[in-house]
Design a protein around this nucleic acid. Structure first.
Lengths: 133, 133
DNA sequence: GCGATCATACTACAAATGTCGTAGAAAACT
DNA sequence: AGTTTTCTACGACATTTGTAGTATGATCGC
């Protein structure tokens, strides 16, 4: 039997990303947006993905005039966080810290990016400091 | 047609992880190790995955006495880095820094972990400082 | 009013994935 | 030597995923 992981598939995610970017999301518009990104898919294919996304609870649709308009039900942050978590589970048995470390080690960053990391870390440290409930 | 992403599938990765952990990896041993982890798979299933992994270039096998012994051809770090990169491509259009930030924001860490981040960042900063080739 | 458009609902289907079963050779045991 | 145990090689198969065609109903332009 197929996969077991996070239900959101790659192609579905691709479509969901487009939804996050746009406002009025009819099937046609989503398709056009995908085409603009170089992703050539048929109208009905997009429809299929949107339907599947709806069944899985990731989007919601309202009939606006002629066509349905789709909009995300889950925020980009939420979905992304969940994906990251899934990868952490898969690669590091759920330990996210090692993942962050590995990521920082295996990639290259500019000074600005590194500064951003530092700032966030300082903030985390301060925020979490009094947190011991 | 099926998926397009990184060729290593989830189940294959599961097997590869076991290979990274052990030394003498016969099909049977890998299977037992998987069982110990709660992953109940048939002997032939493990064999299938190992064969597919070999075809894809992730493992290599040598006949040792009766059975073949499999060993990883790619390091854990390498594969993990590539996976992380793939996720960055998928979620952040290849920008790894935003991924690190998001990851740090959406998860919780202990002070020790945060300290480890800070140390690594300092090091990165120092290492990369003279790097402007 | 009628044909050309546009939308959605179903159905279909090949390729990928996860999972095994069986056949046959080799080795081990008794 | 005969039987039992182990391996590997192949083939099989249900699901999932990516992709699209067709049928059918509503809408628009003229």
């Amino acid at each position: 039997m197929g996969r077991r992981g996070s239900d959101l598939t790659d192609a579905e995610l691709e479509v969901l990303k487009v939804l996050w970017e746009g406002q009025s999301n009819t099937v046609r518009e989503v398709m056009e947006r995908l085409h603009a990104k170089g992703r050539k898919v048929a109208y009905t294919t997009v429809l299929t993905f949107l339907s599947r996304l709806e069944q899985k609870g990731y989007v919601r649709s309202d009939k606006a005039g002629l066509a349905y308009v789709y909009r995300p039900k889950q925020s980009r942050e939420r979905v992304i966080a969940s994906r990251l978590r899934a990868l952490a589970d898969q690669l590091f048995d759920g330990a996210t810290a090692p993942m962050v470390l590995q990521l920082m080690k295996s990639e290259r960053f500019t000074h600005e990016e590194i500064e951003a990391f530092r700032r966030l870390i300082d903030e985390l440290d301060r925020t979490g400091a009094e947190d011991g409930a």
